[in-house]
Simulated scan of single mutants.
Amino acid sequence: MSIDVEWARGELARFLELTELYRPPDPPGMTVWTTRKSNRGSQEDIVASAHVVEQILDRVLPGWRTEVPGNGRVNRWSQHREAAQRADVALQRDAEIQERLGDTALRLNAGNLHPWVWAAARPLWRGGHFREAVTAAARRVNRQTQDKVGRRDATETALFQSVFSKDDPKPGGAEAAADARRRKRHLPQRPTRRGCLRRGLHAGIRNPNSHEDGLPELPEHEALEQLAAFSVLARWVDTAILTT
């Protein structure tokens, strides 16, 4: 779903109005010497507005929490204000800028990833914990797959080897549920390729992120690419049908 630009710009403008800094007038008959400024809106109104604005910023400028500077010592909302100003320009002029600069490449929006992936990753992503966000997304896809096939006896590689096996389910007995197979609705003739993808994600991304200490934080763009890979897997599982 595309963003409602007019509505989003209105919310950003309202937030900027509430958080504008000004010097309150001196009380009658008094002169106060201070450089301290206050926000025009009440903290209650600002917090309520920020709840909406943060979600707009996450859509328009996904990396704003780590990329946009802020100075909390000057004002609590300084980073939000600069991000809101940048987002407003982006909403107005991104199409024009891309056309003028010749940058017409598609951009990956985290909000458009499969809900299993982004819902799990978003809280950590907002804090700049990109590697942990990818790990959380991988775990969520694993849990959702277990739920869909009704299995708790296998996880990750073993689970997906069974899920995307091209063999027929074994009939009857205690192993019937354990041998339930998933099929991709549109490409049922290629299930092993999905298993190969999941094994690659497990070995190349999930294991190192979870079990190797001292790894540096992932660059944001690299982490987003990894989330996109898990999003592909999540959609395959989500749209698959169960064979018995």
Rank of each mutant, 00 (worst) to 15 (best):
A136I: 07
G173Q: 05
L197H: 07
V149R: 04
R140D: 05
R182I: 14
R181V: 11
K184R: 15
K166A: 15
K166R: 14
E156K: 09
G172W: 08
K148Q: 10
A176R: 10
T145R: 01
P169Y: 08
E156I: 03
A174R: 10
A203T: 11
T157Y: 07
R194G: 09
A138N: 01
E217S: 03
N142D: 09
L218Q: 01
E217A: 04
R151Q: 11
P191M: 15
S210W: 01
R143H: 10
V163N: 04
G172K: 11
Q189E: 15
T135S: 07
S165E: 07
P171L: 09
G172D: 13
D153A: 03
P219D: 11
R199V: 13
H211G: 02
D147L: 07
P191S: 13
A137S: 10
A176M: 07
R183E: 10
C196V: 15
T192E: 14
S165Q: 08
P169K: 05
I205T: 05
D213C: 00
G172M: 08
A177I: 10
R199K: 14
P169H: 10
L201M: 05
V149G: 06
R199N: 14
A154Q: 13
D179S: 11
V134Q: 02
C196W: 10
K148H: 02
F160I: 05
P216E: 03
T192C: 06
T155D: 09
G200F: 07
R185D: 08
A176G: 06
P169W: 05
S165W: 06
